[in-house]
Amino acid sequence: MMFHSADLIALALTFKLASITTFILLLIGTPLAWWLANTPWRFKFLIEAVVAMPLMLPPTVLGFYLLIALGNHGPIGQLVEWLGGQPPAFTFTGLVIGSVIYSMPFVVQPLQSAFRTVGRRPLEVAATLRASPWDRFFTVAVPLAGPGFLTAAVLGFAHTIGEFGVVLMIGGNIPGETKVVSIAIYDHVEGMDYHHAHVLSAALMLLSFVLLAGVYFLNRRLRMVQL
């Protein structure tokens, strides 16, 4: 057996984290991107800056603040505790929260630009064809922004798999709960276990390549149909 069983657990956890994060991001990011693409509000640049901040900040900074906020003494941690729950620091939930924030720009930006490319005209046409706002959003804006959704989902997913700093800060190293692949590889290297670091790294490389190649292939086909 090439893989440690602990490494398999880490791999599975990583993909679970990336999937849940991507799902949540599409759920939150779609309306946010739509709003950003369409609002005439003059201060929308502030929101855009906040969304883009993870691009610039070292993940440790984000992780640090999240650790404080989500921990036993942090506002969110205390709120959750008061509600009868467990503070999310060092839990899988905490990881999801961190990943959602950290990967946000990778989902929101492609969606925003896709919605902007679609433009107002097709939606106006749909309105004159009796489609209500929700109706035209789902039957016109979403299909026309299709390639943007694909890009957003892939970038969000890929970026979550690749993250390290935030996880290290707020997740720690609990097998099956917060120990994702990037942490596991770091552990192996720390422990001079280069063999397993190689196996896990190579597996991640291969998976990433296959995933991205597949998506770009699909994206090209989608665009060919679109244009």
Partner: peptide, 14 residues
């Protein structure tokens, strides 16, 4: 109860 024809056809590309 109107219909509208724009200057550009603006057909739904999908």
């Amino acid at each position: 109860p109107f219909a509208y024809v724009f200057q550009e056809a603006s057909l739904f590309a999908h």
